[in-house]
Amino acid sequence: MPAYTLQTNGAVCPFPLIDAKSAMEQLTTGDDLIIGFDCTQATDSLPQWAAEDGHEVVAFDRVGEAGWTITVRKGK
């Protein structure tokens, strides 16, 4: 399965989510999108969006202080 990265560091909410949604539209089912972000509120909004839109979160972790990465596998 192909994996793609989307780096949003420096972007404040809701831009990480907006960019993630638009990036997801380019992918096909089963592709992984690895999103890097540093807006604290996105630690809530990104997993929430994945759950509501039927994507699977395959990894979610911190990257240093106030930095995060989440890997979302595109659902149907």
């Binding site: 192909p2 994996a3 793609y4 989307l6 809701p14 539209e25």
Partner: peptide, 21 residues
């Protein structure tokens, strides 16, 4: 500031840069 630019972007410019991991 959020919805309109997205709609314009969908028409005019390539979506956010994605690189294969």
């Amino acid at each position: 500031f959020l919805v309109r630019p997205q709609k314009a972007a969908a028409k005019n410019r390539p979506a956010p840069v994605l690189s294969p991991a």
